[in-house]
Amino acid sequence: MTALLETRRLTRAFGGLVAVNNIDMHVAEGEIVGLIGPNGAGKTTLFNLLAGSLEPSSGIVRFAGADCTGFPAHRMARLGVARTFQITSLFPELTVADNVRAGTYRTKTGGWAGALFRTRAHAEDERAVSARVDEILAFVGMSARRAMPAKALPYGEQRKLEIAIALAAEPRLLLLDEPAAGMNPDEGAKLVQMIRSIRDRGITVLLVEHHMRVVMGVCDRVVVIGSGLKVAEGVPAEVANDPEVIRIYLGREKIHA
């Protein structure tokens, strides 16, 4: 397997605090990788470095073999990296369908002029976009909600809509930031199903997650970080029994393998 995403000695410091410290990690094409660690371990900082929301202090990020260190978020997205956010992030005033429609931005290139002159290419693009929106809404099971404003959705469906927006961008790599946050066990189980079917669409997934049940249920491989350093890496069952991992999680939630 070739590495789709790779970091070399990736570091980010905030003043004296080194939130991410010399992290080497990779995500292979087609994998589902979990990024776990206690609160304040630097997971979200690492995640933001990968998504282009933060610039690293030093180190290298490579995507599909090409150096993309320090690329801003929109350039990472154009390479094929889509993400969701820890705190629900939608276009609240738009309808569900228009949220997903916005997500298709990078899959087309037409602009204002096509709409102005009503070119055939514009009409075809818009038809393709609409078909894509329908397909993705069906995939996440939200077709019935399409005309509803996003802000009116219940919380669990807002989280699903976030994933739908990211999928509409047709990413090669999907970064999920605590997708199960605030979900009950039943919703968590459905999320595991959805992440698996996302991978079946050919999309590689990297997720940051607190819910061990989700991480252990879905990930092929887990990377554990603590205090900005990589502590362990491996298949979930191995990592869960790693003494170092148990130590940094001590006094926190129990790990269910």
């Binding site: 801003p72 997205a77 738009l94 228009d98 037409g110 204002w112 709409a115 927006i165």
Partner: peptide, 26 residues
């Protein structure tokens, strides 16, 4: 025409949520 175009959707996306807009390539 703007509002029926991909460019117009980008305008609205930027207005509604700039961080999310950037994350989808805008």
């Amino acid at each position: 025409a703007l509002m029926t175009s991909r460019r117009g959707r980008a305008f609205i996306a930027v207005r509604e949520n700039p961080a999310l807009a950037a994350s989808i390539g805008i």
